[in-house]
């Protein structure tokens, strides 16, 4: 959820902004060598994808529905560095062009929804893949676990910001239990949607999934007789 202005005080908001600037600077450096001129159009289209994917409503029950946050998904699909840039742009555009989320809370919103979800998603995905066999179904399982953990991690980041500079009288412990509790449930949804989406892409264009690239064997080009003759 996009935080409004005034919920977190100015010093913590600015601190979050500084952290975001650092993470973006590192990501820009990391993408410079590997993708270079390719980065912009491709990353731009991935940004649109994340933005559009957030519009797909997944019905839960009794008229309620949820949607994807997409931090872990982006990290698995295009790698953590591009993912940080992409989500930073998505959240920034949502604040500046769509007036969604406070201007003073921009750093906080990017930090929670972009940086934390991407870092946690990437780490959990890598750790899970270490213990699992290197197959497509384990990549799907690892995506689910990464997405599941990334959501309460983002909520935890919010609780830390709230503890450091929250302008409300709710007890931080109560906030911790309720916010992280709710986001554990949301995380289940995120995990299922992320895993199903990664699975769908692996089935048709496994080469596009950055997280899967080093685990899957190089596919050989096979020309089948039945097709040729």
């Amino acid at each position: 959820m996009h935080m409004p202005d005034g919920l977190i005080n100015a010093p913590v908001s600015i601190g979050a902004g500084v952290l975001v600037a650092g993470a973006v600077a590192v990501s820009l450096k990391k993408t410079k060598g590997s993708l270079d001129s390719q980065t912009a159009p491709m990353a731009g289209l991935v940004a649109v994808f994340i933005f559009a994917a957030q519009m797909i409503n997944f019905p839960v029950a009794a008229g309620t529905s949820g949607h994807l946050m997409g931090g872990a998904l982006a990290a698995i699909l295009v790698g953590p560095w591009v993912a940080v840039l992409v989500i930073t742009v998505v959240v920034g555009i949502q604040a500046l062009v769509f007036a969604d989320g406070g201007l003073s809370a921009l750093g906080i919103n990017i930090l929670n929804m972009g940086i934390v979800t991407v870092i946690v998603g990437t780490l959990v995905f890598a750790l899970t893949m270490k213990v699992l066999s290197k197959t497509k179904s384990s990549i799907v399982a690892a995506s689910a676990i990464a997405a599941f953990i990334s959501v309460p991690a983002a909520a935890l980041a919010f609780v830390i910001e709230y503890y450091l500079g929250g302008n409300a009288t709710y007890d931080p412990m109560t906030v911790l239990i309720s916010v992280v509790g709710v986001h554990l449930l949301i995380g289940i949804g995120e995990a299922i949607i992320t895993a199903l989406t990664v699975g769908a892409i692996l089935a048709t264009r496994a080469d596009l999934v950055d997280g899967a690239r080093k685990f899957l064997p190089k596919e050989k080009l096979i020309i089948k007789d039945s097709v040729v003759s």
Binding site: L45, V46, F49, I193, L196, T197, A200, A203, R205
Partner: peptide
């Protein structure tokens, strides 16, 4: 719906 999201990613990419 997730298949649609997957297809959307491939189309966008």
């Amino acid at each position: 719906l997730a298949n649609s999201a997957g297809a959307l990613f491939i189309r966008s990419y």
